[in-house]
Design a protein around this nucleic acid. Structure first.
Lengths: 341, 341
DNA sequence: ACCCTAGATGTAATCGATTACAAGGCTAAA
DNA sequence: TTTAGCCTTGTAATCGATTACATCTAGGGT
């Protein structure tokens, strides 16, 4: 069978016996068209199975109907709920979601510019705080599309952002551990240079200081938010002569890797060391021991970012304020943290 | 500052002192243009920061440069690796990825048709085996875009698909448990009507039969791939008078929910009951006990689906064969399964 | 009966790129 | 010198929808 070309607005117009302008009006502003005409057009549209050609509409309307989401690592399950929140909010506004993994194996720097280009999307949600978005060629920034950060962000940056209160999360965790009686507390960090790492580390140091405690350098373990980072930290902890009695991890995956490796080496959590995570990923409540952690509302965060982008897009041109929306975090107390022996 | 309109091909042409046709040719087929001209055009393009307008190009070229991925639940972390595989392969082919969650709160049936519409995407990857893609209005199927299924699929369906050998996975799990000495084996199913549930259930029954064993109806627990399904199954198992000594779960999340709830009720895994999962999600290796499971290559599966779609798109029009690519699964033996007491 | 207005519809320009075809310039063979 | 033929470039149609503006019709007011 030959490939039948899809019906165009012209076909509908011909069948309905009107002009293309009338068809277009019927579909977008039905109230401006006479009752009889409207019925005829809708019938013709129905009969032909007409659907508007988006490329043509977008070209004419100078928009794309799409939002680009820049994800530092699509394969990381942490992002799935955020993406779901973004998608849901945008779909309700007839916008489609284009996902891009910013950690491509072939990182051409001009890619970044392509992402932000006006003909690609009506706006951008960036989950990657390390993307060099300021280094754009000649005057490109003036014709950039609205961009909001979600989750991560950039310092000294004028872009709107939605994030959780990471320092407050760290404080909740530390207060909790100190409240249980811990005084020797270690910290497993996220990737160096990551804003979340920095904020959570800073919050940890500050919170400890408020309790007249100090974060000893040898009790700070490098990490990268992965399970393996937790495993590595466990080995470092085991090698210490003077061990902290509690460990706060920059995220749940690290906490889980940590606990599993400690368990493999005969160390019981929380019996011999308490552990607190960050994120409250789904599995945290079913881990053994159930993980004490700082919950961040991931889906809501995605939804808020999408809404903020929609608001920014709706603003008069040129406006690009730096609203930062900070969502609250919550301590979820479970079984991986108890009073020290 | 006023919004500067972005440079168009006309502007580049004017600055380079050539026609728009020459600019277009320089950019897409440089070898057809004289050396001198090429340099002038490239310089002008560089100077203005010209980027092609994709809506215009797509309209003219009758393509969209995008692939639509239909995900049954974007928030489910299981899909993240598959999505990463898809994105990576497509990005290498200059295609962008539009993600759609098929479980919208407002499920208009004509949405399905919109997804498949030619002006939305050059092709579709569907991870949702339950989408009613065959129920399309008048002749729509003739002008549909290539579609491949990944992970899930539809029975009696002519679409290409990439999946793992689910029945073989079930067989590996059952053979493993029987090899350990188990004879009383239960199964926790996925959602009713889901092709994966059906295939894994069927594989389980067949494998048991090969060992002259039977899957007792009261040892089959309903589920839906969630942690809570595992928790529910644990309660059902606890309520049994005659309990199976091993449980095979339709996926890892269910297995983790199951083990956590058993643990909460003082039942040790694998001491009192062995558990095998399916998927080998990241955390499986760090769960306590480390989960014995059936690994499916999720990223590779996504990549293969994307490649299969690319191949289908490249085929002469009209061709839409039903190649089904089946990837192998692998038993990953860890610590949640041991010989019965 | 006549004019004016509001409402309905059609005409044609427009969005920005691509490309079939035409046309010009130049080389080389006759 | 002429002409065929190649290489390069320009002209203008095209993709499909939207919409400013022009046009036409019907009805109301005087």
């Amino acid at each position: 069978m030959p490939p039948i070309s899809p019906p165009k607005i012209k076909d509908v117009a011909r069948i309905a016996g009107v002009s293309t302008a009338t068809v277009s009006r019927t579909l977008s502003k039905p109230e401006t068209v006479a009752e009889t005409t409207r019925k005829a057009v809708l019938a013709a549209a129905e009969q032909t199975g007409y659907r508007v050609n988006l490329a043509a509409r977008n070209l004419r309307n100078q928009r794309t109907g799409a939002v680009m989401v820049l994800v530092p690592n699509l394969g990381n399950p942490f992002f799935s709920q955020i993406l779901a929140g973004i998608e849901q909010t945008l779909a309700q506004n007839q916008l489609s979601v284009v996902m891009v993994d910013t950690q491509q194996p072939n990182p051409r720097p001009e890619h970044v510019f392509d992402y932000l280009h006006h003909s690609r999307a009506d706006g951008i949600i960036c989950l990657d705080g390390t993307l060099p978005i300021e280094a754009l060629p000649n005057g490109a920034s003036a014709r950039r599309r609205p961009l909001v950060f979600a989750c991560e962000w950039q310092y000294n940056d004028a872009h709107p952002a939605v994030r959780v209160d990471n320092a407050q999360g760290a404080k909740l965790a530390i207060d909790h551990l100190v409240g249980l009686g811990h005084r020797d507390i270690g910290y497993i960090n996220g990737p160096a240079g990551n804003v979340l790492s920095t904020a959570r580390y800073g919050g940890t140091v500050d919170a400890l200081r408020q309790h007249q405690l100090e974060l000893r350098p040898q009790w700070v373990f490098d990490g990268d938010f992965s399970l393996d980072a937790g495993i590595q930290a466990a080995r470092s902890w085991l090698a210490l002569t003077h061990r902290p009695t509690a460990l706060f991890c920059a995220n749940d995956e690290t906490a889980i890797g940590l606990i599993s490796e400690l368990h493999r080496n005969g160390i019981d959590v929380p019996g011999q060391v308490s552990v607190v995570g960050f994120d409250d990923i789904d599995i945290a409540r079913c881990f053994i021991p159930a993980l004490t952690t700082i919950r961040q509302p991931r889906q809501a965060l995605g939804g808020a970012a999408a809404q903020l982008l929609l608001d920014t897009i709706a603003q008069p041109v040129g406006f690009m304020g730096g609203t930062t929306e900070v969502l609250p975090v919550e301590l979820i107390q479970r079984h991986s943290s108890v009073a020290p022996v």
